[in-house]
């Protein structure tokens, strides 16, 4: 699905990167733990999170993530938006909870990334 589809499905809005509405999103990862984002995300994906600090952007920068969806109606600070803009990221926001957001996107066909754990290795 595209960024524009995600916005429509989650009744969200585009805070940054309006020009990238056609960007294709192939998978998703939802977490407020950046430790887990760093450990599990190994492909291009949308990051769905309710965590609101500059390390969300920095974590995304390290992983080359292009799209972040903030849940629970939170408004990222100017500092966060500026950092994201510098990275050329798309930043979205929805008033839904993380659970509902993921449910809506899953029902519309978006899938999670594959998880590798230490035990499975």
């Amino acid at each position: 699905m595209t960024v524009a589809d995600m916005v429509k499905i989650t009744s969200g809005k585009i805070l940054l990167g309006e020009e990238h509405q056609d960007l294709e999103i192939s998978s998703a990862f939802c977490s407020d733990l950046m430790s887990d984002v760093l450990a599990f995300v190994n492909e291009e994906t949308v990051l769905i999170t309710g965590l609101m600090n500059p390390h969300v952007i920095r974590t995304s920068e390290m992983l080359d993530l292009k799209c972040i969806l903030f849940v629970r109606g939170k408004q990222p600070s100017q500092e966060i938006l500026e950092a994201a803009e510098e990275m050329g990221m798309v930043v979205l926001s929805t008033g839904h909870s993380a659970f509902t957001t993921c449910g809506l996107l899953y029902a519309a066909g978006l899938r999670g990334i594959a998880i590798r754990t230490q035990e499975a290795q």
Binding site: D32, L33, M34, S35, V37, L51, N53, H55, V56, Q118
Partner: peptide
């Protein structure tokens, strides 16, 4: 080195870190 083992403080956790994934990662 075990996933999930962490001695991080509350400040680190409040920023989204300290989940015990760092060294194994």
């Amino acid at each position: 080195m075990k996933e999930g083992f962490s001695t991080a403080n509350d400040e680190a956790r409040s920023l989204g870190f300290g989940a015990g994934m760092g060294l194994p990662n």
